[in-house]
């Protein structure tokens, strides 16, 4: 234990502490500010009150927007997971020339299709289809943007399901639907769970698409409403924002904990045996 070693060790821990504080401060703010009688942007020990909570619940759009978020995300996530699982399975099993090229193109285009570059055409298309202000329409656009990446990740999981499992089930008389439901999906379950949470978190935090496609304040999800939480003076409404932010972050954390406990996360395929 030379002095140099000690200095290095101390330096290392100081660095870690700084980095951790950098991440911890916003978290602590989120935990304390909602229950502070005079919430500010700084971090301090709160004098406890539930006034902010009452104020948030009385806000005309705060709770509605959270429900809107939930509806939007559930539709987008379910559509993404179901379609990605089916497409990934098909792409994993069917031999077509240029399959890998197709997958990479899809992945590449996905960042363009729902990215900023495509916003104007998407808006025009949705306008002509009469899907502006439609939760369902917006959810479909969000799902469309997530599908390529979801398919790409899930295909890796599907590739890792041994063919002999499927063939075995087929010899025992299982129909293609039974093979998928009894064998392939359960074996690829960690992948499906990962995609489910990934899609939910992505949709939950999506701002641009709902902001453009849902013009009606009553239809807007939480991510969009957060932007409008100002007081009369034009500065951030700090009675509502802390509580709203806390409520906004809970579903994602709960979903993560639930899915992680039940299925476990992995970002690659493979069978534990």
């Amino acid at each position: 234990m030379s002095p140099l070693w000690m200095v290095r060790r101390i330096g290392f821990y100081v660095l870690v502490a700084v980095v951790m504080a950098f991440f911890a401060v916003p978290m602590l703010w989120l935990a304390s500010a909602p229950f502070d009688s005079r919430p500010g942007l700084g971090l301090r020990w709160p004098d406890w009150t539930l006034d902010n909570v009452t104020a948030t619940f009385d806000h005309p759009y705060a709770l509605t927007s959270l429900v809107n978020s939930l509806v939007l995300c559930v539709i987008a996530t379910v559509v993404t997971t179901v379609l990605a699982a089916l497409a990934a399975y098909a792409l994993s099993r069917v031999r077509i020339p240029g399959r890998d090229l197709l997958l990479y193109l899809l992945l590449l285009l996905s960042s363009v299709v729902t990215g900023t570059a495509a916003m104007v055409p998407i808006f025009v298309m949705m306008l002509q289809l009469g899907l502006i202000n439609s939760q369902f329409g917006t959810a479909l656009v969000i799902a469309g943007g997530m599908l390529p990446a979801a398919i790409f990740i899930l295909k890796d999981f599907m590739d890792a399901v041994p063919r002999s499992y499927e063939e075995s089930a087929r010899v025992f008389g299982a129909s293609p639907r039974q093979v998928l439901a009894h064998v392939v999906l359960p074996v690829a379950r960690p992948g499906v769970a990962t995609i489910f949470v990934w899609a939910f978190v992505n949709a939950w935090g999506n701002f641009l698409l709902p902001f453009l496609l849902l013009r009606d304040v009553g239809a807007q999800p939480a991510a969009v409403l957060l932007r409008t939480l100002y007081d009369e003076g034009g500065s951030a409404n700090l009675t509502v924002i802390p509580v709203f932010s806390l409520l906004y972050s809970i579903p994602v954390v709960v979903l993560y904990l639930f899915v992680n406990r039940r299925y476990g996360f992995r970002f690659h395929g493979g069978i534990k045996s």
């Binding site: 499992y165 075995s168 087929r170 009894h182 069978i271």
Partner: peptide
């Protein structure tokens, strides 16, 4: 395969994990 009344054991056994 399912209509042939055959049963098969695969080399890797293909037991569903």
């Amino acid at each position: 395969p399912g209509d042939r009344r055959v049963a098969m054991v695969f080399q890797d056994y293909a037991l569903f994990p």
